[in-house]
């Protein structure tokens, strides 16, 4: 939409951005809120000035009353504009982490002062879709690691479009962007058997197709016959997973790549693959303590995080 305001551009933006809000939930306070007349406001203001001159000269009281009435409406509308933005609340931010290169979808829940006229939202490189109770922001990402949201500018011209009020909000929390995934990674490296830890007390030699039942394994995979016969909790694994004989330790050296970013991309791809195949995996990055092999969402998050911040 055409933002027909003369005010917030360049210098004005830089000046006012210093007072950006940083928290959540957030409601602009008076010092974070700026207001200026729009071009329309200036045009009508000048017209009113001339009307005032003419009507005062002839002391035509009706004309004077009309002029002052319109002037008052203009001024009251400025207060409304100010209040409209001040009553706008940003409540909650939800974002699922994404891999670098993907677009970050952010859902910002808000409480606009009313639903018939929603304040506008702008931000650098942002695609914005406003709804009654939330805003969807689409932000392209390029690098892994911490990402700071670009400052968002909330603008309102409610109710008459003669004044524009704006306020900046820049979230203080950073969002984590996972590393990019290599598109066609080589298959998982030769399995590196980890010496059995206390978690895996049984030898796996004679149970090639069965694994020790683990928390999270579906009940349908439990090998009930063996359970009945031997009292051991084991679970079956589909054909494709049979190759994996045990937990994997994915090491940076195994990628065979000199370039750090490429290596991290490959590791990321492997981790995701391993998680998909339910092969327990661990991670070892150069110069950092290794993460013991495991499976599950928490573990995956932990590994991806380690890679993102490496």
């Amino acid at each position: 939409m055409n933002l027909d305001s003369i005010a917030p551009s360049g210098r004005m933006d830089r000046l006012t951005m210093k007072r950006a809000g940083k928290t959540l939930p957030w409601q602009p306070d008076r010092r974070q809120l700026f207001i200026l007349p729009t071009r329309g406001g200036i045009i009508l203001g000048i017209a009113l000035l001339f009307m005032l001159l003419g009507s005062l000269n002839y002391n035509n009281n009706l004309a004077i009353a009309l002029t002052f009435f319109m002037t008052s409406c203009l001024l009251v509308s400025a207060i409304w504009t100010h209040r409209h933005l001040q009553d706008c609340r940003l409540l909650e931010l939800q974002a699922l982490p994404v891999h670098a290169g993907e677009s970050l979808k952010i859902r910002l829940f808000w409480q606009p002062p009313e639903t018939s006229y929603l304040p506008e939202i702008q931000g650098l490189n942002l695609q914005v879709a406003r709804h009654d109770n939330h805003i969807d922001l689409l932000l392209p990402t390029h690098h892994r690691g911490w990402l700071k949201l670009p400052p968002l500018k909330l603008t309102s011209r409610y109710p008459l479009g003669l004044f524009v009020a704006w306020s900046w909000w820049r979230y203080s929390r950073k969002l984590l962007i996972w590393p990019a995934v290599e598109i066609q990674p080589p298959p998982l490296p030769r399995l590196q058997t980890v010496p059995a830890k206390s978690n895996y007390p049984f030898s796996q030699g004679d149970l090639t197709e069965l694994q020790r039942w683990q928390a999270g394994d579906p009940m349908s995979r439990v090998a009930w016959k063996i359970l009945a016969r031997h009292g051991q909790w084991l679970s079956r694994h589909p054909e494709g997973e049979n190759e994996s004989h045990g937990p994997l330790l994915l090491r940076e050296e195994d990628t065979g790549l000199r370039d750090r970013e490429a290596a991290i991309s490959r590791l990321t791809a492997w981790i995701l693959e391993a998680e998909r195949l339910s092969i327990p995996y661990g991670l070892e990055l150069r110069g950092q303590p290794s993460i013991a092999p495991a499976l599950g969402e928490a573990h995956l998050t932990c590994c991806l995080e380690r890679l993102a911040l490496a």
Binding site: L24, E92, L93, R173, K174, L175, L176, A298, T301
Partner: peptide, 14 residues
């Protein structure tokens, strides 16, 4: 509600 929202902020909890 505020407490619930805070726990849902990214970067705190899974």
């Amino acid at each position: 509600q505020q407490l619930l929202r805070q726990t849902r902020e990214p970067g705190r909890f899974v």
